[in-house]
């Protein structure tokens, strides 16, 4: 589904990604972990087309297409989704109107019927149950005055509405209490299908107890230093990141 080969990227001329290789197949769940400032959020932003980052080399194929030839909104309509670490607030734009526009853009691209406001109302009321969101949040302005946790809940609601093929979740656990984390983690699990894939970007292993990855990668200094199965997450929880960095410095893993 996603094939990243020797990807390099920089921001304002400073290299941040220094050669990333990663293969994600349908049905898989991958976790990218790493210390702060390692470049793991950058990877997500580059994949969804953040304009501040310049791709300086390498190649990314998404379902066989060159990802970098697609505009950011086109990538989204093709099923690439990012749950943002810091979702923005938009005063005066109702959450429901935003969700419906996003849904209809995707539906139009997929050749499905668009939903009018009444149809969408029925549709969205089913979806909010999945993330245990209160109805009033639909009528409020998009993310405006939402707590950190409510914003994250809204991100997963959007994921449920758009049903992406590949969802990148950037620091889903930040700002969430333990109960909310479990609710959202379970919602993400329920959205996972054999034809979909997940890329979880996280600093803390905690979220991986609910959303269990088959593959864990440690990213630091713009490179993937170590890749292994989900047991690596447990090891990182116990031992922190330093030993991976030391091992890499000693010339072990690339």
């Amino acid at each position: 589904m996603l094939s990243i080969k020797n990807l390099t990227a920089s921001i304002n001329g400073t290299p941040v990604l220094k050669g990333i290789d990663l293969e994600i197949k349908a049905g898989e769940i991958h976790a990218i972990m790493g210390p702060n400032g390692s470049g793991k959020s950058t990877l997500g932003k580059v994949l969804v087309g953040h304009p501040a980052y310049e791709v300086t080399g390498g190649e990314v194929l998404y379902e066989g297409r060159n990802l970098f030839e697609m505009a950011a909104d086109e990538r989204a309509r093709a099923g690439l989704f990012m749950g943002f670490q810091h979702p923005i607030e938009v005063p005066g734009v109702s959450n429901a109107a935003f969700l419906r526009l996003a849904y209809n853009k995707k539906a139009e691209a997929d050749g499905r019927d668009e939903l009018d406001p009444l149809e969408f109302d029925d549709f969205i009321h089913e979806k909010i149950k999945l993330v245990a969101m209160r109805e009033e949040f639909l009528d409020r302005s998009l993310n405006e005055g939402f707590s950190g946790g409510e914003k994250k809940r809204n991100e997963i609601l959007q994921m449920a509405v758009l049903e992406p093929k590949l969802a990148i979740l950037d620091e889903l656990d930040s700002g969430l209490d333990i109960d909310a984390l479990r609710v959202l983690g379970e919602a993400v699990n329920r959205l996972q299908r054999p034809d979909r894939a997940l890329l979880i970007i996280t600093h803390f292993p905690r979220i991986l107890e609910t959303i269990q990855p088959q593959f864990v990668h440690v990213l630091s200094g713009g490179r993937i230093l170590k890749s292994a199965g989900k047991e690596l997450a447990t090891e990182l929880e116990d031992r922190g990141y330093d030993w991976v960095l030391e091992e890499a410095a000693a010339g072990g893993a690339r």
Binding site: A72, R75, F84, P87, K105, K106
Partner: peptide, 9 residues
């Protein structure tokens, strides 16, 4: 980017 990421031009 937030809007574009949701498929909105």
């Amino acid at each position: 980017l937030y809007f574009q990421q949701r498929g909105i031009p």
